[in-house]
Amino acid sequence: MNLQTLTSGISPLDLRSCLISKKGEIIYEHYRDQDTASKIAKTNSCTKSILSALICIAMDQGLLPQADTTISTFFPQLAAKEDPRYREMTLHHLLTMTAGLEWTEFGGANSFPRMTRTPDWVQFVLDQPLRDAPGSRMEYNSGVSQLLSAILVQASGMPIARFAEMNLFGPLGIESYKWEQDPQGIHTGGFGLWLRPSDMLKFGQLYLNQGSWENQQLISKDLALRSVQPAIHVEAPRRGAYGWHWWADSYTLEAENTSEASFDYFYARGFGGQFIHVIPSLEIVVVLTDDKRKKAQFPGDVFRQFIAPFLLRREH
């Protein structure tokens, strides 16, 4: 299988970008036009995985306590709530989206769009009722990402973007970015970070290297590995599992005249076709970005339908 085969498969999809690296070397690079390579664009919920990295770094530095610490440490008002389950909510529950809050991400009274129309996003999330016991069920929730952002600001004593520049963006050589903020000036934890595709690839490579970059351990190996491990299985129509603001899944190719081939992978996913896929067993990172309106986008999973089978056939 040659790279031209992949090009012929994805060209009709009109992706904004598709980058593939193996062992740190780019083996495939496609941009819709010459300007795309140098332009930052919305990563949407890939922001969550960046935030996860920053939380891990803060834990490594001793700025944040262990993941089983209850968040009432940072939000004392939770201790006064009548429902005692609020006091059981931990950093791990926020990172795995298992906080138990009643939430519908894209609609209804308890939702991400509703949160963004309020004067205090963090308070809006803290005011939500509990539906499940913390830790029992995953409910996708950009509100808990904003709680993590607020916690990181408390712990580090600085804006998240500055913390990122010092501990993540700087070492990775990420110089061009934009990061949106809530009304209190807290950088958005669940979305709102703009990056170049090549810088998204660097971030994926950092995790392929288990937190190491150019002989510097930016994230401890223990936390880099723990954060991408499946923590809880997700409910249909989503597939796979969820870790610390990372998704995890596996892919199997039942190829003709060959033995079954498969791999496990973890990935950052953002609305509208933004992805960073990491495949440890193949030492491969794949970045996909798109910017078309939903009706104009390919309706399926580009990675699983085009990239994954190509990579496995190439390996075999």
Results as ranks from 00 to 15, higher is better:
residue 6 L to Q: 01
residue 7 T to I: 05
residue 7 T to F: 00
residue 7 T to W: 10
residue 7 T to Y: 12
residue 7 T to A: 12
residue 8 S to T: 11
residue 8 S to R: 03
residue 9 G to H: 14
residue 10 I to D: 01
residue 10 I to R: 01
residue 11 S to V: 01
residue 11 S to F: 03
residue 12 P to S: 04
residue 13 L to R: 05
residue 13 L to Q: 01
residue 13 L to K: 03
residue 14 D to Y: 05
residue 14 D to N: 13
residue 14 D to V: 06
residue 14 D to M: 01
residue 14 D to I: 00
residue 15 L to Y: 05
residue 16 R to K: 13
residue 18 C to V: 04
residue 18 C to G: 00
residue 19 L to F: 07
residue 19 L to H: 00
residue 20 I to Y: 02
residue 21 S to N: 06
residue 21 S to Y: 10
residue 21 S to I: 10
residue 22 K to V: 10
residue 22 K to C: 09
residue 23 K to H: 04
residue 24 G to D: 12
residue 25 E to F: 02
residue 26 I to Y: 00
residue 27 I to E: 09
residue 27 I to D: 02
residue 28 Y to A: 00
residue 28 Y to F: 13
residue 30 H to A: 04
residue 30 H to C: 08
residue 30 H to K: 14
residue 31 Y to F: 07
residue 31 Y to D: 02
residue 32 R to C: 01
residue 32 R to E: 14
residue 33 D to I: 10
residue 33 D to E: 13
residue 33 D to K: 07
residue 34 Q to S: 11
residue 35 D to K: 15
residue 36 T to H: 00
residue 38 S to P: 00
residue 38 S to C: 06
residue 39 K to S: 14
residue 39 K to F: 13
residue 40 I to T: 15
residue 40 I to K: 04
residue 40 I to C: 03
residue 40 I to W: 01
residue 41 A to D: 14
residue 41 A to I: 13
residue 41 A to N: 14
residue 42 K to D: 11
residue 42 K to N: 12
residue 42 K to H: 15
residue 43 T to G: 03
residue 43 T to D: 04
residue 43 T to K: 00
residue 44 N to A: 14
residue 44 N to E: 12
residue 44 N to L: 11
residue 45 S to I: 03
residue 45 S to L: 04
residue 46 C to K: 04
residue 46 C to V: 14
residue 46 C to T: 09
residue 46 C to E: 10
residue 48 K to R: 12
residue 48 K to Q: 11
residue 49 S to F: 08
residue 49 S to D: 06
residue 51 L to K: 02
residue 52 S to A: 12
residue 52 S to M: 07
residue 52 S to V: 02
residue 53 A to G: 06
residue 53 A to P: 01
residue 53 A to L: 14
residue 55 I to A: 00
residue 55 I to E: 04
residue 55 I to M: 12
residue 55 I to F: 04
residue 56 C to G: 10
residue 58 A to F: 04
residue 59 M to R: 15
residue 59 M to H: 12
residue 60 D to S: 05
residue 60 D to V: 10
residue 61 Q to Y: 03
residue 61 Q to N: 13
residue 61 Q to S: 11
residue 61 Q to L: 09
residue 62 G to Q: 05
residue 63 L to C: 12
residue 63 L to W: 13
residue 63 L to A: 15
residue 63 L to Q: 14
residue 64 L to F: 09
residue 65 P to G: 05
residue 65 P to V: 07
residue 65 P to A: 09
residue 65 P to W: 03
residue 66 Q to F: 08
residue 66 Q to T: 12
residue 66 Q to L: 11
residue 66 Q to G: 06
residue 66 Q to M: 09
residue 66 Q to H: 11
residue 66 Q to C: 08
residue 66 Q to D: 14
residue 67 A to W: 00
residue 68 D to G: 04
residue 68 D to P: 00
residue 68 D to T: 10
residue 68 D to K: 09
residue 69 T to R: 06
residue 69 T to L: 03
residue 69 T to K: 07
residue 69 T to F: 10
residue 69 T to Q: 06
residue 70 T to Q: 13
residue 71 I to P: 06
residue 71 I to V: 08
residue 71 I to T: 10
residue 71 I to S: 07
residue 72 S to I: 06
residue 75 F to E: 09
residue 75 F to P: 01
residue 75 F to Y: 08
residue 76 P to N: 10
residue 76 P to Y: 06
residue 77 Q to C: 03
residue 79 A to I: 05
residue 80 A to I: 08
residue 80 A to M: 12
residue 80 A to S: 12
residue 81 K to S: 08
residue 81 K to R: 15
residue 81 K to D: 06
residue 81 K to A: 08
residue 82 E to N: 13
